[in-house]
Write a protein that binds this DNA or RNA. Structure first.
Length: 285
DNA sequence: AACGACTACAACCGCATTAAG
DNA sequence: ACTTAATGCGGTTGTAGTCGT
C-alpha cells in the first residue's frame, strides 16, 4: 500500500513524499544512485536520485536494509551473548552496541531486545531494568549461553565467536565452581537468605568487564562489582559441593528446562515459569 | 476456511548533536 | 558567536506473516 504525506499544504505534501514500505524499484534506484555517487547528503541524494522520499527515509533504508554488508538471519548465540553483555554495560546504546556486531544494525538489535528480552522480563513479571532481572540475566542466562557456545565450539572444533573488531571467546564467560545464593520469593532486590547452589556463575572476575579496558580496547568502567551485588556467595574452588534439589534434577538441568537454549530458543521458558516465585518454587520442589 | 492473537521486523517520528555557512 | 541544515539516535508504531482455535 502507498502512503502519502497529507493535509497541511507543506512542501512535503506538494512533493508527494512517499511513506511506508519501499518498493523494489525504489530500492534499485537508491542502490544504483549510491553505487555511482556514494552515500551521504541524504536530502539532496533523495532529490537527485528522483526518489520521493525524505533523506531520512533513504538513509534508514540504506543503512538498515540495502547496505551490502548488512547481515541478515537469526541472531546467533554468540551475538545474543554479546548483546546481553554490552547492554549490561551500556544500556540502550543500540548504535554503540551495534558497532561491535558487524553487519547488525542498531535497529535489529533494538528489535531483538524488545521482542525477546523484554518479553521474557514481562513474562517473569519483573521490570527489565530491575536488579532482579539483570542479575538473573547476568548470573544465570549469560553463563548458560556461554556454556552452549563453548559446547558448540567444542563440537565443531572452533573456539571463538567472531563478533566484532575483537573476538569474544566463550571462555571469557567461564566461571569457576562457585556457590551462589539464589533470590527467594519476596526478597525484592535484596536477597539476604536462601540456599546455596553450585553453578558456574558469571562474575566480574570471569567476564571481560572485569578489566579496565574491554576486549575491544575500549576503556570501560567495570559494572557493579559482585560485592555490590545483593547475592551472597562464596567461592568453592575445589567444586566439591554439588547441590541437587529434592526433585533429583541437578540445578543446572533444572534451569535448562526452563531456559531452552536449544535451537536458539534460549529465552522461551516464559510459559514454564510465570514469575520469579514460580521459578523459585520449581527449584525447591 | 475464517478469524483473532501474537510475533518479528521495517519504517517513522521527535529530539539531540554535529557540521557548515 | 550564531543560525540553520544535516545527520544520528532511541523510542514507537505499523504491518505482514504465522500460529492456534
Amino acid at each position: 500500500m502507498e502512503h502519502h504525506v497529507k493535509g497541511d499544504g507543506s512542501d512535503e505534501e506538494l512533493m508527494e513524499l512517499r511513506r511506508g514500505p519501499w518498493t523494489v524499484e525504489e530500492d534499485f534506484t537508491l542502490i544504483n544512485y549510491i553505487a555511482h555517487h556514494g552515500e551521504g547528503r541524504w536530502n539532496s541524494l533523495a532529490t537527485c536520485a528522483g526518489l520521493r522520499r525524505t533523506g531520512k527515509s533513504c538513509r534508514l533504508r540504506w543503512l538498515n536494509y540495502l547496505r551490502p554488508d548488512v547481515r541478515r538471519g537469526n541472531i546467533t548465540l554468540e551475538e545474543q551473548l554479546l548483546i546481553l553483555e554490552l547492554h549490561s554495560r551500556w544500556g540502550n546504546r543500540w548504535s554503540k552496541i551495534a558497532q561491535h556486531l558487524p553487519g547488525r544494525t542498531d535497529n535489529e538489535i533494538k528489535n531483538y531486545w524488545r521482542t525477546r528480552v523484554q518479553k521474557h522480563a514481562k513474562q517473569l513479571k519483573c521490570d527489565v531494568n530491575s536488579k532482579q532481572f539483570k542479575d538473573t540475566m547476568r548470573y544465570i542466562w549469560m553463563p548458560r549461553l556461554a556454556e552452549r557456545i563453548q559446547a558448540g565450539a567444542a563440537a565443531t572444533g572452533t573456539s571463538t565467536a567472531t563478533a566484532n573488531s575483537g573476538t569474544v571467546t566463550a571462555t571469557n564467560y567461564q566461571g569457576s565452581n562457585q556457590m551462589v545464593q539464589l533470590p527467594q520469593p519476596g526478597m525484592g532486590g535484596n536477597f539476604g537468605g536462601g540456599i546455596k547452589i553450585k553453578h558456574n556463575i558469571y562474575t566480574p572476575e570471569t567476564s571481560c568487564t572485569a578489566a579496565s579496558s574491554d576486549s575491544f580496547g575500549t576503556q570501560v568502567s567495570p559494572v557493579s562489582d559482585v560485592t555490590d551485588c545483593c547475592y551472597n556467595y562464596h567461592v568453592n574452588h575445589n567444586g566439591t559441593q554439588d547441590y541437587c534439589p529434592p526433585n533429583g534434577l541437578p540445578y543446572q538441568e533444572s534451569f535448562d528446562q526452563g531456559l531452552d537454549f536449544n535451537n536458539n530458543n534460549w529465552m522461551d521458558g516464559g510459559d514454564f515459569w510465570k514469575n520469579v516465585d514460580d521459578m523459585w518454587n520449581f527449584l525447591q520442589q
